[in-house]
Design a protein around this nucleic acid. Sequence first.
DNA 1: CTTTCGTTGGAGAGCGCTTTCCGAGTCTGC
DNA 2: GCAGACTCGGAAAGCGCTCTCCAACGAAAG
Lengths: 344, 344
Amino acid sequence: MRSGRAPTLEDVARVAGVSRATVSRVINGIRNVDPQLHEVVWDAVGQTGYVPNRLARSLVTRRTGTVALVVSDSEAHDDDPFMSRFFADPYFGRVVGGLMSVLRREGVQLALQIVGTDDAKKRLVGDLRSGQADGAVVLSLPAVDPLPRMLTDGGIPAVLIGRPADPVPIDYVDLANDTGAALAAEHLLARGCRRIGMISGPADVPASLDRISGFRRAMARHGHGWFPTASGNFTQDSGEAAMRALLAQDPALDGVFVANDLMALGALLALRSTPQSVPDDIAVVGFDDSSAATAAAPPLTTIRHPLEDMAAEAARLLLARVEDPAMQVSSVIYEPSLVRRTSA
Amino acid sequence: MRSGRAPTLEDVARVAGVSRATVSRVINGIRNVDPQLHEVVWDAVGQTGYVPNRLARSLVTRRTGTVALVVSDSEAHDDDPFMSRFFADPYFGRVVGGLMSVLRREGVQLALQIVGTDDAKKRLVGDLRSGQADGAVVLSLPAVDPLPRMLTDGGIPAVLIGRPADPVPIDYVDLANDTGAALAAEHLLARGCRRIGMISGPADVPASLDRISGFRRAMARHGHGWFPTASGNFTQDSGEAAMRALLAQDPALDGVFVANDLMALGALLALRSTPQSVPDDIAVVGFDDSSAATAAAPPLTTIRHPLEDMAAEAARLLLARVEDPAMQVSSVIYEPSLVRRTSA
DNA sequence: CTTTCGTTGGAGAGCGCTTTCCGAGTCTGC
DNA sequence: GCAGACTCGGAAAGCGCTCTCCAACGAAAG
């Protein structure tokens, strides 16, 4: 097969016997080109196996047809295995899947970027500003993250998945985490549970915070101003430990809301080595409706989190903002729903 | 903050009072520059907030600092939800995590590409040839895929994860799937199982094929030339169905090897509604040691598949080939191991 | 004091593409 | 039959960068 240098516009022009400009016009479907030549040019393209060089094109058009998926981490994790845990989590894949479902049919590519240090974030913004990508979808993990602000200051089209920790005029999609947690509380209460505990996530990231406050509010509304709590870091192991801690606080617990499915899996595991059975003695409600939920034994009653849809919406929002940078800043909040399975 | 046009080399040169060439030399750390000027230039860089334009740089250096992660699918799936299932699977995330663990510290970026149709594959090769990325890591899903050959023909540095279906002179990393399956067979046999069945994956993809043949061979070696089989498509649901089918063939089964953990989860689910208990009446061995294995009830005995390590090795291999395209084609095969948990 | 060499920095070409600007044709309408 | 309006295609100027080539200069050598 043809090897060596890839054919350029110039080559096609030579073969077709026209100028570079004309070939460019034909390729980009610009009017003002004689149908005759049109055909001649396409023939030449076929003959030479020409493929436009995206780099060169982007350099002049200032459009890359690429968006970045930025995973913004904190400095602290820079070299620990946290990241690999993050990728193994279904969360990441669901986001990518959702994004790709819309980007793909627009012919837009996704470039993955991981930034930990502030320095890396600065570099990222610089790269983005110089046209490395048309925009960014941001997954901001740390509790407090300068990146969203940097992005807006730099004038970079960007959409967050999950609300920013501090108010920044930036587009985002999020889940009504508080409503979801309230749903869980009400389900547990309606089921007749009287001694309910909660296993929460870290107390500093927005999504986790919202689940805590939503649950707390709903419980208070039903007269449970206080309830035992333990917290984990969204991993299965931490959920298992938290369940034990909770049981130590109140061995007669008859219901527990766990802030994500992975930790709920851990909780279920911990419960398996106690006399209590799920859901008869103690009901368990998870959060996310991830694949772990159906895999669990017993299958987890959980709060559905339409992450794919949210990611898809984020992609759409980003594309729209790229198209019209002056567009009004907007956010779209998804409503969670309760998925009843066996565990509660 | 400074907005509008991003500063260019030209701007820095003007501020520093030197020529573009000199700034370029300083930035790229080329010697032959008076330490005095060196400092002046860096000052100017700081002042202007200059960040080199990667596009422009790549255009001339023919190096992008980006590798593509190509998910090669078949035309058939082009518009069905298969892809989103694929992303939700821990498999994808583990690969990304493994790749990033090495790419990140080399400052190399990952660009995600999904190609279904032959046309898209052709376009991809063209893009790659014209320097869109320095190389590609390929996840080839379909049973028979023209992409690997296209890549080598196009002279694109590429590494497959999982062996190609038909022999192609291309680098790849793979797992000794047959050995893993044999491990499972031997474990089941050593445990005293006499009526063993297998739930396999699709009969046309290499990894699945190897697991089937490895298991079959090991069983034959121990006098079990025939055993009941059912097949699924690597999803939990299909595993559940396959388990029922197997039980219908032989209700007295006392052991089953399931070709991946997700299907094993399904099998466990199916067994929960039968009188048999796992592992006492029937032992179950999975494959992959994915996060699903520990989440299962009972926790799954399974074959460990060091996917992160394999992906990391693929990244290293690719980087090496990019550096030296003439390097000899090589493949590295990882050895699986048995992880004993409770299910067998 | 001239020659030679090594060092340093500038000019400028060129990576492959798009796009503005023009000039050369082609058509109408009077 | 010719001005004016259009259509079409080419020349060429960049996009922001790297890197080769060369001029200039100072120092070392003869």
